[in-house]
């Protein structure tokens, strides 16, 4: 009986200390945000920064409260485009990395083009993709997938070759097959690289969707910003910017959470 009570209390205090730890790690960021917003408010309302350059934060908030529907609807469109593109890009990248890893010739033959692909400016390819896939969501998904694909493929491939030489020797002495070496050594070794690439790609996929919407679209955050710009509706522009930043942050957060679950043993995951 007593032991149960102690156990519960232990679990509760563990939870409290976890919450405290979290608070300690985020409060500096919160304070900085408060200071920046306060300065911004003062700049707009006391120092007279014109509204068309940067509207006061309360005006942006007001816009979000007055017209939440268009922000939510367009934000959702962008979210779905980025998420779909990200998923397709990751699956394709992992597949290609595994194929190239086991096929030396193809790897050597394609690696320079992968690097070129990594450096494709989105603005340059988006118009062509829109011509191929239309004004709707499909073309944005493709652009987001392309921007996800290259970093994830390149870093996963790199990670597959990152196993320690001594660990490779160990597997040789233990008479491991090539397949066992891939599954039990090289794939786990590649995970930290894979997740680092996912973080980069998570932000890039949102960016890709928004930029593609600028070029030609009938919905989405990029579309919303463009139409607001025609009427010089700066509070609306900034509210849309905040929503797109929020989407990117959600993506990043999900990747970080999954990373903690999958590779808690790696040094990139804090809290030892």
């Amino acid at each position: 009986m007593t032991t149960t009570v102690v156990g519960e209390r232990g679990a509760l205090s563990a939870k409290i200390s976890k919450a405290r730890k979290f608070f300690h790690s985020v409060w500096p960021a919160i304070i900085i945000a408060i200071i920046v917003i306060a300065l911004w408010y003062v700049a707009s309302n006391v120092w007279g920064l014109p509204k068309y350059i940067l509207p006061s934060p309360d005006l942006i908030l007001q816009e979000a409260i007055d017209n939440p529907n268009s922000l939510i609807r367009n934000g959702w469109v962008t979210f779905v485009e980025a998420a779909a593109g990200f998923s397709i890009g990751v699956v394709a990248a992992v597949f290609v990395a595994l194929v190239l890893d086991s096929w030396r010739f193809l790897e050597k033959g394609t690696s320079p083009y992968l690097v070129i692909g990594l450096n494709i400016p989105i603005v340059a390819i988006a118009p062509a993709v829109i011509i191929w896939f239309g004004f709707g969501m499909a073309s944005k998904v493709v652009v987001a997938a392309v921007l996800t694909f290259f970093p994830v493929a390149i870093y996963t491939l790199k990670g597959l070759k990152a196993a320690d030489r001594r660990e490779v020797d160990l597997f040789r002495v233990l008479s491991a097959s090539r397949f066992q070496e891939l599954i039990k050594l090289r794939m786990p070794s590649s995970l930290p690289f894979f997740f680092a690439a996912l973080r980069v790609a998570s932000a890039a996929s949102v960016l890709a969707a928004v930029v593609a919407e600028f070029i030609q679209a009938n919905a989405g955050i990029g579309y919303l910003i463009l139409t607001a710009a025609y009427t010089n509706d700066t509070p609306r522009i900034w509210a849309a910017v905040a929503v797109s930043a929020g989407i990117a942050l959600v993506f990043y957060g999900i990747v970080t959470l999954v990373e903690r679950r999958v590779i808690p043993w790696h040094s990139s995951v804090g809290d030892r």
Partner: peptide, 27 residues
């Protein structure tokens, strides 16, 4: 043949039991 290297060369994603299980798994 068993080989002990200069550094422990343990797989960092496996706990002690799973590290020791590795040769048996591979076999």
């Amino acid at each position: 043949i068993g080989y002990v290297f200069q550094s422990a060369t343990l797989l960092e994603w496996r706990n002690v039991l799973k590290n020791v299980l590795l040769p048996l798994e591979l076999a």
